[in-house]
Write a protein that binds this DNA or RNA. Structure first.
Length: 646
RNA sequence: GCUCCCAUAGUUCAAAGGUAGAACGCAGCAAUGGUAAUGCUGAAAUCCAAGUUCGAUUCUUGGUGGGAGCACCA
């Protein structure tokens, strides 16, 4: 057989040689370091014989692609250890994931394992791995597979769902055999530096109607230092957690009397207000009009909108004067009432009605998570009414706006286009197809990549979702652009076209931040609490060296800055200078100014930027001018280069 | 909602079947200072309910709240 290598060279080999043997013929150290191979770009076990002309790429442990194989094999190792400790355990699925691996299982007597079992499982894993078992690939028929796994109902279910013509493969190390597509490591000896991280429940096949299995997450690396580094990173992420920073920086709190109902503290409210001001400014520029709609409306309205039928279990409902009222879980019905309050012409389009709308949703208790998932939040919502021809332009314009705003925060994001659900959807398929094409075209028109998320659209229309990442690597939907083919019908909204005829407009929902709560949660973690000056709750701390001699000048400076809208505080406490400096730094105040004799005599300020040890002397006027420029430019122009926490 | 874990001053952590100790923060007093913690003194806590027990904050059960994940979702 002829094997072609990556560099384009090729060589004849005896049929049936494995990648390992081919590697060995080139260099024994290459063979040793190789983890798996890509044969005609298909992942192949290193020891699997090749019987045909093929291209061959050997993947060594230095290649990031090998880490997935390592983790996948480690999940098998864990399963073998659990089987040894709890014979008869049934296994669900056990893949490698972005960070590490997991395996779902159910012990024979249904006893639940806990974190305290990790030590023993890890020890057993090491014992098995140290036997240096080869991972053997075994091909079997469906019948053989069903016979082998007859005691494992999950595996039987999986086997029965494999396509008829697919070769069924098993992998064995030692006496443990698992149904698996592979590929795997050549040998368990690579599995040395792993750690089990957490345990939880997980529904079989990801469906809450099914029974719950146990899931253990773990992670594996080739080198000990990589594992150690990872554990340090986990620790650092905890330091960045917005719930922790929210408390330390006094931004928000959540009381046990209102789970999921955050309180904004003065510092957090200031930050939020800065964000809202920015939001108003750009939306005004983009031609939006602003409204506020009531947070509570009569049940009849929710019956028209369909929420009463479809969303009731998430709504807070109250009876007033014998009528049922619901607190709004969404702003759209209110926005539509505003639209319907007058007759509209095609000349009004696109009509953009924006609202910082406070909504309440009764989310499941287990879903709550700091500011990321709450039961009351403010959506930076807007409803846009237009004709179908306007969709591509308007959505393209929106994507550009979203991009501009996320760039201000240096946030990276991905776009997902969610299409028509397979079952639960309303409207005609042709309309859906056109709408989906329009959203895709809008992305393309502004040169943005998107991933298609088939079947994940809302029942009333397709949508573009903008996903941001938190410090734990979890992805959260923030921005969203949704076409609505339902509410315009239900509310019978119309406009008058060129010919004086009544027509049905297209309606679009969109949110840029998604919710202020979630977005600010993301920002807290993104900046690690060290906000850019324009957002920081306290932008500037003035610290007099001696409160008896320097207070007057400090107060003068304060009123000069306050007058320009700078958020400034003077620290007049009877504490030592070092103490106040330390606090200004731990609270991550963007700028601190120290006022002493030198400054008072010469009308100067001594400035230090957060994260920097550099001190700069400027005149008051010069400093103010630069500070205002920095704030005005949203941080693009800075006074002094300092460490940025992005 | 489900599985597992957790619950002690405002916060972060100790300790114990016989009512609990520290650090930071807070209050008072002293100290007047040049870039990350001045000293002393003080106030301050066992989430709620039932059970076991001579005695429970500790053990058991239930509730409430929190964390990780699943499911659900901005």
């Amino acid at each position: 057989m002829k094997i072609t290598f990556l560099d384009g060279s090729n060589k004849e080999f005896e049929n049936g040689l494995s990648s390992y043997e081919i590697a060995k013929s080139i260099s024994s150290s290459l063979a040793k370091r190789s983890i798996f191979a890509l044969v005609n770009n298909q992942p192949y076990d290193l020891m699997r014989p090749i019987n045909f002309d093929a291209t061959l790429e050997l993947i060594t442990e230095d290649d990031p692609r090998s880490i997935e194989i390592l983790n996948h094999s480690c999940s098998h190792l864990m399963a073998s250890a659990i089987t040894k400790l709890y014979p008869g355990t049934n296994f669900g699925v056990g893949p490698a994931i972005e960070e590490g691996f997991y395996y779902d299982f159910k012990t024979p007597n249904g006893e639940n394992l806990t974190e305290s079992d990790f030590e023993l499982i890890e020890k057993t894993m090491h014992e098995i791995a140290n036997k240096n078992y080869d991972f053997e690939r075994i091909e079997v028929t469906r019948k053989e597979a069903l016979e082998m796994f007859k005691d494992d109902k999950y595996k039987v279910e999986i086997i029965n769902e494999l396509p008829e013509n697919e070769t069924i493969t098993l992998y064995r190390h030692g006496d443990f055999v698992d149904l698996c597509r592979g590929p795997h490591l050549p040998n368990t000896k690579f599995l040395k530096h792993f750690k089990l991280l957490n345990i939880s429940g997980a529904y079989w096949r990801g469906d809450s109607r099914n029974e719950q299995l146990q899931r253990i997450y773990g992670i594996c690396f080739f080198k000990k230092e990589d594992l150690d580094n990872y554990l340090v990173i986990l620790e650092e992420r905890k330091q960045r957690d917005h719930r922790r920073l929210g408390r330390e920086l006094e931004l928000f709190m959540i009381s046990e009397y209102g789970p999921g109902f955050p309180f904004w503290l003065p510092k957090g409210m200031t930050l939020r207000k800065a964000l809202e001001d920015y939001w108003y400014k750009i939306h005004k520029r983009e031609g939006y009009q602003f409204i506020t709609t009531p947070i509570m409306l009569n049940k009849d309205l929710w019956e028209i909108s369909g929420h009463w039928a479809n969303y009731r279990e998430n709504m807070y409902i109250s009876e007033i004067d014998k009528y049922e009222f619901a607190i709004k879980p969404m702003n759209c019905p209110g926005g539509i009432l505003v639209y319907k309050s007058k007759l509209h012409s095609y000349k009004d389009f696109p009509l953009r009605l924006a609202e910082l709308g406070l909504v309440h949703r009764h989310e499941a208790s287990g879903a709550l998570n700091g500011l990321f998932r709450v039961r009351t939040f403010t959506q930076d919502d807007a409803h846009i009414f237009m004709t179908e021809e306007m969709i591509v332009d308007e959505v393209g314009r929106l994507i550009k706006l979203f991009d501009e705003v996320y760039k201000v925060f240096n946030l990276s994001y991905t776009i997902e286009l969610s299409t028509r659900p397979l079952e639960k959807y309303i409207g005609r398929i042709e309309v859906w197809d056109r709408a989906e094409k329009a959203l895709a075209a809008a992305c393309e028109s502004v040169g943005k990549e998107y991933k298609i998320n088939p079947g994940d659209g809302a029942f009333y229309g397709p949508k573009l979702d903008f996903k941001l990442r938190d410090s734990m690597g979890r992805i959260w939907q923030c921005g969203t652009i949704q076409l609505d083919m339902n509410l315009p019908e239900r509310f019978d909204i119309t406009y008058i076209d060129q010919n004086g005829e009544k027509k049905r407009p297209i309606m679009l929902h969109r949110a840029l931040f998604g919710s202020l709560e979630r977005f600010i949660g993301i920002l807290i973690e993104h900046y690690g609490g060290a906000f850019p000056t324009w957002l920081a709750p306290v932008q500037l701390k003035i610290i007099p060296v001696n409160i008896n001699y320097h207070t007057e000048y400090a107060k003068q400076l304060e009123s000069l800055l306050l007058d320009k809208g700078i958020r400034v505080e003077v620290d007049l406490r009877e504490e030592k200078l070092g103490y106040k400096i330390r606090e200004a730094q731990t609270k991550k105040t963007p700028y601190q100014i120290v006022i002493g004799d030198k400054e008072v005599e010469n009308g100067l300020v001594n400035v230090r930027k957060y994260g920097s040890n550099e001190q700069i002397s400027l005149t008051k006027e010069e400093f103010l001018d630069k500070l205002l420029k920095e704030i005005e430019s949203l941080g693009k122009e800075t006074i002094i280069g300092g460490k940025s926490d992005d």
